[in-house]
Design a protein around this nucleic acid. Structure first.
Lengths: 114, 114
DNA sequence: GTGGGACTTGAAGATGTTTTCAATTGGCTA
DNA sequence: TAGCCAATTGAAAACATCTTCAAGTCCCAC
């Protein structure tokens, strides 16, 4: 019996749940890039970026291939781009109309001072 | 200046990254449900479910309304359903063809015994 | 085969999340 | 109002993830 699908989904989303990893995926949406370019586009130290790339690799979300002295990363499925688009849609909706701010305000109403 | 979008995205995905929370969202895809029904559909203690529901509420992903002595939960946006579909597509791709198993094998090749 | 650049790894402390249990709130009915 | 059921909350221990830095690998040029 395999890992239940809801567990696989949770693991997958957890893997996406880090700002550096999100930026990596966004940068890779337009095509493969060498680590050097990722590093230039993301404010983080090389070793930290490597750690996050390793997380994405282990999850099978990106692939890496060595080309001479540099290493090139690519998305392993273009569906990832779809997913990021869907996420952006949701966040745009949420942040402008009902999102975090409003949610927290609603929260506050329930715990009024007294 | 607001929270950068990549940070908001990361937070959002992190919020989805828990098996109980995923199951809640899947159950809510077909319409609002009282906590009682969520509890019946997910193997977890009431207080634990409540904690996870609170996480989803704080993130603005679900809403809750009290109806008499029970509380009813609903998705706050139907786009969430799209997202879960996109995720399922990716996972199906990944798990049958290039997924975790293969990724780990590839990993292993790089660290061959010696 | 030595030196240097590009990238990765291991390990450990700092931080954050999950689980659990006891205590609590809100609402219903006697 | 007392008792009960549904659901939530607070708090602390257990557990997982992140960051950081020193050390390591791989490749190219000399």
């Amino acid at each position: 019996m395999p890992v239940p699908l809801y567990q696989a989904k949770a693991d997958f989303f957890r893997t996406l749940g880090h700002p550096v990893r999100i930026r990596v995926l966004e940068l890779l949406q337009d095509g493969p890039l060498p680590v050097r370019d990722l590093l230039a586009g993301i404010e983080v130290e090389a070793s930290n970026l490597s750690q996050q790339l390793a997380v994405l690799r282990r999850a099978g979300i990106v692939t890496s291939t060595r080309e001479g002295s540099t290493v090139v990363y690519a998305l392993s499925s273009n569906d990832v781009a779809d997913l990021l688009r869907a996420a952006r849609r949701i966040l745009t909706d949420m942040l402008s109309g009902q999102g975090e701010l409003l949610a927290e305000l609603r929260e506050a109403e329930h715990t009024r001072p007294g």
